[in-house]
Design a protein around this nucleic acid. Structure first.
Lengths: 334, 334
DNA sequence: TTCTGGTAGGCAAACGTTTGCACAGCTTCA
DNA sequence: TGAAGCTGTGCAAACGTTTGCCTACCAGAA
């Protein structure tokens, strides 16, 4: 294990004190031009790279240049896109990213929250597991900048960037109704998630607006995973009086529903119409192309990271809350 | 910013020296049962969490309990699955994961490699950008455990886990040929990537085995991104004598090719057959369901992480090299 | 000349750990 | 009784930075 050059090595070689080297690097304090040149030269010759760990230990506040991102599942393309958005702005600002998968598991979320704090990250981006997530609240109370994405925290006056789930679902279901459907099955998200609830609300409001009755048997709650989409679609399609259209509340569940539909040999959209939340890699070339409500996942991540960086700069700035509009992409599946 | 409790606080409260506390936590050294209980109690009361940064600074070798993962693009589901595999075993072993997206950009790769070293990660998992990537080699020379995934490094005797790309492509193209196709367009990966080359070799070998001529005009090289799949498919399909089947060398390019096919209104598989590398979220429910060669991406990540952990434990163990077999999933697109 | 003030750079503490060494007290054995 | 060995604990250095404070020097003003 070859030890990398440290400040001390550079200082020795440039014949100055380590503080001078540190100040040269960070451009803090006045350093003579000639001394500076000598230091720079020594750094280059030794291939000096500052040790981020030591730096982080010393300066607890502010710039460790490390962000934490905790997401439910990287395999969900919504979160992959979001992560990519975060990563891009982090990189542009020379921040690295500590990525954590919490899998909707509260213990895992807690573990990662602990890790991130104990790594002294400069800030954390996450979708809270539910609305008053005590672990997240504690982090906030500890004074670590947090921005919520996708879902929000009921208490706490935090930066957040969300998608307008209600409007997204409303537009989708309005569209379904406009196609003449009267029995619309809902493959919903967990009832205790704000996204699940908001989308459900959109579904109901669209029905109310159209004067359509809301039938409890057509409303099912899944867990945002593919398998539950499949199961619930089968349940709905097995009803004595099955729905003629399905609205699936996220991408994975849409894929699951599509599996169920394929297994039953049903034709889309004649025998069963479907609209899904989330754009999927193949949805535009699907046969038939899928009508979906596309969430601006990349942008959510991007804005969240920008907000976080601003807050790290200035802890006192007022919390801002962004609500991004999803887009209904009408194709052929409904 | 509430300062978290430190070793010193715990020591004070338990009326012992900090070294005693440290030893209690790490179970190193003999500590009296009664003292231990007192320390544990104090820790609990203060909500003490060890500071990972300080720990990492002190113990340069070994357990910082932090792994680095550098991947081309998290939006590529192959790498998302792989990342998930890594993450799962990391979590099981109480390691956190520093995730980096290098986007096939050498400067970005170098940046992240620097960050990871300067964060003193215990080890790094990555697909080298190409076969003799000097930056990676330097990291290895610095004594940091590295395991290569997906692609390999020509020099250096490293742990690696790869997929048998040659066999995967061979089986796929054999299958295409068995369906009676004689003009098979290849949407290949970059010629300077080992995966691209291996898959090309499979394509050629299948042709040779079958006594089919290899036509240069049918072979195109993309960059593993969706757009290039689309472009190349259009090129191939515009040929005076177009191919009757396409073999696309990764998931994103397959999606691109599908776009081109859809834009031209071609029927799969009658007018154009297609086989892709990589399983995509919707490929089994696609219409028609896609014939693909599925790479065990999750397993690649999982084994890589396991190998890395073993190497961290024991730097001297001989390098092991795993080659996982992909699976040809025959559905209806060819 | 002496004083004031500014500039360049050195000194050493601090961040929160881990760990080699020292040492006190006790047991054991000759 | 005393040497040897073990057990439990404390002391302090070290990891590589950043930063408040101090000093030495020099220029310009009085």
């Amino acid at each position: 294990m070859k030890k990398p050059a440290s400040l001390i090595d550079v200082a020795r070689r440039a014949k100055v004190n380590i503080s001078t080297v540190s100040r040269t690097i960070n451009q803090t304090g006045k350093i003579g031009a000639e001394t500076q040149a000598r230091v720079l030269k020594a750094m280059r010759e030794l291939g000096y790279k500052p040790n981020r760990v030591a730096r982080r230990l010393r300066t607890q506040e502010g710039s460790s240049h490390l962000l934490g991102l905790i997401i439910p599942n990287i395999q969900n393309s919504f979160f992959a896109d979001l992560a990519r958005g975060v990563e891009d702005v982090a990189y542009k600002n020379n921040f690295a990213l500590l990525l954590c998968n919490y899998d909707e598991d509260e213990a895992k979320e807690r573990f990662y929250l602990d890790v991130l704090q104990s790594e002294s990250v400069d800030g954390i981006i996450l979708p809270p597991i539910h609305e008053n997530d005590p672990a997240v609240l504690q982090v906030v109370r500890n004074g670590i900048p947090v921005v919520c994405v996708d879902r929000s925290l009921s208490s706490g006056n935090l930066d957040k960037v969300e998608v307008d789930n209600h409007t997204g679902a409303l537009k989708a279901v309005e569209h379904i109704i406009a196609q003449g459907h009267k029995r619309i099955g809902l493959i919903g998200g967990p009832a205790d998630s704000s996204t699940g609830r908001e989308r459900l609300r959109g579904y109901k409001d669209a029905h109310n607006q159209a004067g359509l009755p809301i039938k409890a048997e057509l409303i099912r709650f899944g867990d945002f995973k593919q398998e539950s989409g499949q199961t619930l679609a089968h349940e709905l399609l097995s009803l004595a009086d099955p729905p003629t259209a399905l609205f699936a509340c996220n991408g994975l569940m849409t894929a699951g529903a599509l599996e169920a539909i394929a297994a039953r040999g049903l034709k889309i959209p004649k025998q069963i119409a479907i609209v899904g939340f989330d754009e999927l890699p193949l949805s535009s070339v699907f046969n038939p192309p899928l009508t979906v409500v596309r969430q601006p996942a990349y942008e959510v991540g991007k804005y969240a990271a920008e907000l976080l960086l601003k807050r790290i700069e200035d802890a006192k700035r007022p919390a801002t809350s962004l609500k991004l509009m999803p887009e209904l992409i009408i194709r052929k599946s409904c």
